[in-house]
């Protein structure tokens, strides 16, 4: 069954068509990567899926339910979760409190404290738990936000450039984590520029260009596609 289905999704800001009749289907259980040059409309597509923007026309179906007009928080309750491009942590609060806020609606009391400890260990942030989140390194902030996003145990996890600013080792570790989450049944849609990461995790890849689906297939098919090389990968690899 398809978990997420975008049907003829349109979004324009004034005369600028940022998303143009996008059709995209995500199967439950897959890791799907969204690539494309800057300004292709990738982040806008995320915002449409999350309900931060509303499409001019078209429909968004999640697990068969039409969520096009639903508020963001209600979509989260349905099983969506996101890590933003710019790490969206609660900067003035401690790392521990960040996780507590993410976890408190699912757990309480002693169980909550245990869940926080478990997640801190999973993220390797135990020694930073009393730190103010704003003082973390960029990579640590990314991990913290990923931790908050996965703590909701979503059915579909949206990752907007999860490895930006990470070293190759950290990128690889993040890839392994995504695969582990996926093995536990989480469907993942990731925007990513790092082709090593895409190659590591993606079951399928969609190339977005000028607000439209430009190409779709396995990573090998995408890399072999000369049209994709011309608009995106060519420059990236040059």
């Amino acid at each position: 069954m398809s978990l997420l289905e975008l049907r003829k999704l349109n979004k324009h800001f004034g005369g600028l068509h940022v998303t143009n009749a996008v059709d995209l289907t995500l199967e439950a259980g897959e890791i799907h990567c969204l690539i494309g040059p800057n300004g292709a409309g990738k982040s806008t597509l995320f915002r449409l899926i999350l309900g931060e923007h509303h499409p001019g026309s078209g429909d968004i179906l999640f697990a068969g339910e039409n969520i096009t007009r639903m508020k963001s928080f209600a979509r989260i309750h349905r099983g969506l979760s996101v890590k933003f491009q710019v790490p969206g942590v609660f900067k003035g609060l401690s790392v521990r409190q960040n996780l507590e806020i993410a976890l408190q609606s699912r757990h309480g009391g002693v169980e909550l404290e245990m869940e926080i400890d478990r997640l801190l260990a999973f993220l390797g942030l135990e020694s930073e738990q009393a730190q103010t989140a704003g003082n973390l390194s960029h990579g640590q902030k990314q991990w913290l936000e990923i931790g908050m996003a996965i703590s909701l145990k979503p059915r579909l996890l949206l990752l907007d450039e999860p490895t930006a600013g990470m070293s190759p080792e950290e990128t690889h570790l993040t890839g392994e984590m995504v695969q582990r989450l996926n093995a536990d049944g989480m469907t993942v849609l990731a925007i990513e520029h790092d082709m090593a990461f895409v190659r590591q995790v993606a079951h399928r890849v969609t190339v977005l260009h000028l607000g439209q689906v430009f190409a779709q297939g396995s990573i090998d098919q995408i890399v072999a596609d000369e049209r994709v090389a011309a608009i995106y990968l060519g420059q990236a690899h040059a």
Partner: peptide, 17 residues
């Protein structure tokens, strides 16, 4: 917790449901 979370980052708070 939610109140201070909204102060720090309302978008993130909403995206935690």
């Amino acid at each position: 917790n939610v109140i201070v979370a909204i102060r720090e980052n309302p978008e993130r708070a909403e995206m935690l449901g």
